[in-house]
Each structure stands twice: as structure tokens, then as C-alpha cells.
Design a protein around this nucleic acid. Sequence first.
RNA 1: GGUCCCGUAGCCAAGUGGUAAGGCAGAGGUCUGCAAAACCUUUAUGCGCCGGUUCAAAUCCGGCCGGGACCU
Length: 311
Amino acid sequence: MNKPEILVIAGPTAAGKTAVSIAMAKRYGGEVVSCDSMQLYKYMDIGSAKPSPEEMDGIPHHMIDVIDPREDFSVAVYQEMAKAAIADILERGRLPVICGGTGLYLNALLYEMDFGPSRRDSDYRRNLEKLAEEKGEEALHARLADVDPASAERIHPHNIKRVIRALEAAELDGRPLTAFENVRKKSDAYTARLLGVTWDRPVLYRRIDERVDRMLAAGLKEEVRGLMARGFTSDDIAMKGIGYKELIDHFNGLYPYSEAVRLIKRNTRHYAKRQMTWFRKYEDMVWFNGSAYTDPKNWLEDMYAWADKRS
RNA sequence: GGUCCCGUAGCCAAGUGGUAAGGCAGAGGUCUGCAAAACCUUUAUGCGCCGGUUCAAAUCCGGCCGGGACCU
């Protein structure tokens, strides 16, 4: 039996994934499933570059505005919800168009990744954080070397977050991360076709600068002020998003507005670079570089031509 | 015209005789539960130019060029 197909639109931030995904959904009778760790959050519209209702143009979107910025979230939850959305779309005979830049979340859809049952363990983590603070990260790392030497080998001692997660997996879940090494089995549920959207680096960086300016003109400051008024602070995970953390720091008097803007642009460039590193690993991804086209229409036409094949 | 100060990587910058710290930016990378997060690697055969002193010069001396301050 043939596995159903899904279409994945990936690429660095500000490359134009949103427009492409909506165009694809329109052409092939699809619905968009966002794969973006920030668009999940309610109230964070401008800074997370959520598509507006006008942009969506009637195309149903999933995995946007699904949680409160203060709710606990993780890849595991994303995987469960997004898979359910995909199954639902397929059941209705439509094409799931996965659109997003969050690599880990995308992996959770593309590969058979078993996260096991969900748990609440904030005390455990807090204790380990305290251990790292009091006895040093080396002590924490040494503890990992005891229970899961292979993971200790792979994870740098400075990377406390990862060390803690590995400890948690080994000590609490009883499933050391090492067990998942080299597990790269593609999803049983569907076949994914990967379309990469990108630009030459200097062009991408210019697009990023321009988009940040557009976000600010569109009222990002007011959006952040509104979130602060709702009681969100830089301690909330969702407020660590680019554009949010910098403006919060600015409003708290840490630096002038111009510096906040500079940092937002720079951090977005860094982010785009990391995304490229991640997506380059997808060997089946077919890239469409916008810099190679003088007319954006031809860019989209080429993507259609590619998508038309065996669709 | 005179006196003084400065000139080290794309940017900031340490280094006053023993063979070029560090930060930022840039580039590359890691990745199964906060991932727009967290973390790692990497970047000057050369210190404005020319000459001199010395076993050894970014460091000392002379000249020149460039920038700045003050004086006339």
C-alpha cells in the first residue's frame, strides 16, 4: 500500500516560506501545518511572523495560536498535536503542507522519534541546575559520565541544558539518549517531499533587515508592551523569542531602542545561519534559491513544476 | 610653522625587546522533551610605510604618510 504524501516547505527565516506554503496549498488543495516554535503561541503575532488572515486567503492553518505563552511545551507535545492535525487533513483527502523553520520539530514529524510518555519533573531539573551552579558544570557532567558515558562523550560540559536532559533521560526515564543514536528511520505514516526555500546569504540578510523594519513599523513594540502588560517577563520561555527578548530588555532600560533593533537583526541572522546548518543535512531536500531568478513568478513556477511531478 | 598624542584583523582592543590576549562581526558545526533555546570550532607569517640598532623589534631610534589635540 502506498503511503500518503505530505509536502514540507522548509528554509531559513525570512526566505518566504509562508507565501510559498499558501501558494502550494491553494494549488494542490492543501492545508498548512505550521512547524514553528513561536507561531504556536497566542498573542505573539507580529514578531513570530504569523500569516495574517488576508495572507492565509482561506487556507486552513494548523498549529498556530494553540498555546498560551506561559504553557509548558516541548517537541513531544508538538509531535503529538501536529501528527494528529496531519492525520486529520489526510483523512479528509487533502494535502498537508508543513511549513516551518524549527528543525527539531520537523524531525519529530519526518522521523520515527519516540519521546515516550510525558512527565512533569521541574523539581528534578531545578535540583540539577542548582548542582551545576554550586558544584560546577564539570560535576554535573561527571554525573552524566557515570550513568551514560556515551552521551557524556557527545555533550560538551558547558552545555548544561543538554547535560541535564541527558541525565533526565538516563536517571528518570531509564532510557539513555544514547539509545537513540543513529535512529533515523523515516516516518511510517507518510512520505514527505521536501522543498527548501532559500536565497544567497547577502540577499537573505538584507531580507531579514527589511523584515525586522517592517515588523517594527507594523507595531511590534506595541505587541511587546501588550505582552508585558499581561504580565509576561523575560523569564517566560516564549519571551525568549527574537524580537521579544530584545524589546523587553529595552523597555526595562537595559539599552536604547536603536541597540534593540540592531540586536534583533543580528540575532535573526544568527538564527537563519543555524537553520541553514540544520536543513543542509536533509539530503532529499530540493532547494529553490530565489537569488537565481529575476522574476519571482518563475521561482514559484519552478516549484510548481517540481511539485507537479508524481503528485 | 611649532609642540604633544595616536596608527595592531571588517570593527573595538590588550600587548613597551623574546616570537601577536580577548570581545564583536563573519564562516563552519552539534542536536530525541525550554530548540527563535543551549553549546562547540574557526579567523593577522604579521602590528601605517621606509630605513636603522639588536642574536631577537608591534615594542627602541630616524624619516615619511595618515588622524587628533593644543600653541603661534
